[in-house]
Design a protein around this nucleic acid. Sequence first.
DNA 1: GACAACCTCGTACACTGTAAATAGTTATTT
DNA 2: AAATAACTATTTACAGTGTACGAGGTTGTC
Lengths: 258, 258
Amino acid sequence: MSDEISGRGDPLKSLQLLWGRTEAPRRGPKAKAGVADLVSAAVAIADAEGLDAVSTRRVADAVGISPMSFYTHIPGKAELLDLMMDAVAGEVLKDRPVFKPAQWRANLSRVATDYRDFYLAHPWVIQLATHRTVLGPNTFRSADVALSAVEGLGLTDLEMDRVLNLVLDYVHGAVRNAAREKRVKELTGMTDAEWWSRVEPFLETVDFSPYPVLSRVGKTTGETYGAHDPEGAFAFGLARVLDGLSVFIEEKTAKRKR
Amino acid sequence: MSDEISGRGDPLKSLQLLWGRTEAPRRGPKAKAGVADLVSAAVAIADAEGLDAVSTRRVADAVGISPMSFYTHIPGKAELLDLMMDAVAGEVLKDRPVFKPAQWRANLSRVATDYRDFYLAHPWVIQLATHRTVLGPNTFRSADVALSAVEGLGLTDLEMDRVLNLVLDYVHGAVRNAAREKRVKELTGMTDAEWWSRVEPFLETVDFSPYPVLSRVGKTTGETYGAHDPEGAFAFGLARVLDGLSVFIEEKTAKRKR
DNA sequence: GACAACCTCGTACACTGTAAATAGTTATTT
DNA sequence: AAATAACTATTTACAGTGTACGAGGTTGTC
């Protein structure tokens, strides 16, 4: 277990599949299932039961082929994961919003919340995103739209890249907290409250005097970490990030005017 | 494969192990290996070969006991992962720096870079940190120290929590990018350059016209994503985050003076 | 009809986490 | 000293994983 890597194996084969560059077979029987079927079945399983429920056998079974037939269509599990990532990447910023440079703050807000909703809809993406970027069409498209949120501000290309990465890095980090609650709940069948009610009696027996600040702050933020407000925390962090970018961008444009 | 969860199973057993609350055995033979041996062996394996090289059998073998003897000391793999996390958490902010409130910016900088170095030293932590927080002594200690970086600024406890979380969320997200390169390199034996040299010929055959912004920006940021400057990107993002916090904190303290 | 291309499948191997039963070791109790 | 309870260690076993290999069936082209 633990970490199959998305982006290993022959990178070329992955790319060909991502871009649909596999030439149509001229002979042979018609395939019962295509790559798209396998991928969407895998995504459905991951959405419903988490990433570790996705096995090549399960996926093959879901589309009605035998375990090993899976490998006729996709060379290995790593490639399947790449394809899954790119498949769902099509959902983010789906309507291709038109961004006006003057409203960069609203633009980035939109990008951030869209990515956040996306991660929450497919929490398994967060796990896979620990690996290499998938170079697929949908991933490219969403990156293109996201970058265009900071287009026309007088930033250099490198700055645009960094600004966007800052926002997305923050979103990723912030969503982790909300997403893992969801995952743990599903996998353990325990709600957060149940879990804490089991843990709390023990915590009351530990000596918190070596952690004075944590113990005070922890109590306030809700029963020593128990109650979260992910929504509020996300909004708070995003506002700070945008404030920080505001300082940077304002200074940039002020210089340009001189 | 994919995702064992750190924080499942009986939460109490995990906590007892984390806090060394297992009473010393009164009878029976002396154990060949203790919990600490198992955990440090596991950490060594994870550091050297990645998280997926850590199996209960491997760990048992490393300390010289038979596979199933592992379970005499630790109830399952989930608990092992919790213990691993807390074990290495002892390394972050090890010297317990004394933070002066007036220098909150330097303080948070220190916290951020310390966590960054920590993640880079143990990239597998990033994968596991997708799950629930480990309630262990070392984790508590590092959280306490980190929180004290923003102590005495006139922030409420909730604000302190959010400020710190913002910084740590960003660090986590930013480090991901650097850490995954390291991991992919180790696991595939391919350097980033090798990997890109294989991928590039293909990318040149794809039509980038649907992604005008990405294609332009990508080219500038280095061979369409090829060359990174993680160091620079990290510094850039952190500076923006701190700028954003500066706005918030300054406004706060200004109000207090009134 | 022959052949090559292609899909599907059964078997097999090395690995994983861990349940269950058994055997061996030690300190306490009788 | 013998019995017992508590504890560690080990063997065997099972269901699950990814996937290599090879055999067999199906389709289009020559």
